[in-house]
Amino acid sequence: MKLGIAIVGLGDRWEGQYLPAIRSLADRFEVRAVCEQVSLRATRAASELHAEAVDGFRVMAGREDVDAVLCLGDQWYGTAPILAACDAGKAVYSAASLPACRSQLSQLFSRVESSGVAFMAELSRRHAPATVRLKELIATQLGRPKMLFCHHRLPQPSDPCKRSVRTAGSDSWDLLEMVDWCRYVVNKEPSSVVAVHHTSRCQDKLSDYQMMSLDFPGDEDSTTSSLAQISYGQYIPSSWQEAVAFRP
């Protein structure tokens, strides 16, 4: 028996990542419906998968032939499809950015937990081939890492003053994913966190650079601790291609 799934938001990795994956698992999943803020994309994707293009994610989540909802891209309605799936009692796989605000994230997780549905955030860095190999080396040869460096730099938007709060939320989720990756590699929870950020000159609520230092305690039989240094920024003009590609 195949699992009936509904897709909300196709995102920018649909053609290269998600569509091939869904096709390779055609013996396990069957796409029933597709909902996308750009209706033409929804129609095309639904046609490729022999599914139905729908306009409303809430009605789609309530369909009897849908067992799980896949949120594959950021849409203007944010986390509303996840809440709709919780109301309908449907499992959720989310590749979309979750709220960066701690209170909003806590409310979302509480809602998911109270509904009792299965929920999985993508956290793709955990499953990257390089991460899998690194975990193997840590377990067999290298031992626990002492220091981790995660630096992610993107070109500055052509007009930083027009950068939206929703885009900034997606950036913050990228930062949170790097924090999660460090926790996953070390296999510990941090005991202390120190963070700084540089505020954009155009909008006080947005940052063009964020840095975070996480200290992970050692094992009970070891005094060796681990330190992770994470930085994320969009402060280099896009015209400075060599500077963007430079790694310290």
Rank of each mutant, 00 (worst) to 15 (best):
A100R: 10
C86P: 06
P81M: 10
G73W: 05
C71E: 01
Y93W: 15
C86N: 14
A96T: 15
D67C: 00
A80M: 11
W76E: 12
P81W: 09
D67G: 05
E64A: 00
A88W: 13
G56R: 09
A61Q: 05
K90Q: 13
R58H: 00
E52G: 00
L49H: 01
P99Q: 13
V92H: 13
G73I: 10
D65F: 04
A51R: 09
V92N: 07
C86F: 13
A53S: 09
A84Q: 04
D74H: 04
S97Q: 11
V92Q: 07
A61L: 01
A84S: 15
V54N: 00
D55V: 01
F57K: 03
E64I: 03
C86S: 14
L70Y: 10
C71Y: 05
A95H: 10
D87E: 15
G78T: 10
G62V: 07
P99H: 08
L72Q: 10
C86W: 13
D87A: 15
V69M: 02
D74V: 12
E52S: 05
L98T: 00
G78D: 09
G78N: 09
A88N: 14
A51D: 10
A61D: 05
S97T: 12
L72S: 11
D74A: 09
Y93C: 09
A85C: 11
A96I: 02
P99E: 06
V54R: 13
E52A: 10
V69L: 11
W76Q: 10
D65L: 01
Y93P: 06
Y77C: 12
L83N: 14
L72M: 08
V54D: 10
G62S: 06
H50I: 08
R58S: 08
G78M: 13
E52Y: 02
S97W: 01
S97A: 15
C71A: 07
V69I: 15
S97K: 07
Q75A: 05
Y93T: 11
A85H: 08
D55F: 03
A85P: 11
V66S: 01
Y93V: 12
L49S: 05
R63Y: 02
H50V: 02
A68C: 04
D67E: 01
V66D: 03
V69R: 02
A53P: 03
V66M: 02
F57N: 00
H50P: 03
A84T: 08
A53T: 05
L70G: 01
V59T: 10
V69G: 04
L98R: 14
S94A: 13
G89P: 11
C71F: 02
K90I: 11
V54E: 10
L72K: 05
A85K: 14
P99D: 07
L83M: 13
G78F: 10
R63L: 09
K90A: 08
G78C: 06
S94W: 06
E52K: 12
D87S: 15
D65C: 03
G56C: 06
E64C: 07
A51C: 09
D87K: 14
L49V: 00
V69A: 02
P81I: 03
C71P: 01
G73F: 01
P99L: 04
F57M: 03
L83Q: 14
A96Y: 03
M60D: 02
D55K: 06
A100L: 01
A61N: 00
P99G: 12
A51S: 08
V92L: 09
E64D: 01
G62R: 01
V92Y: 07
G78P: 08
A84H: 14
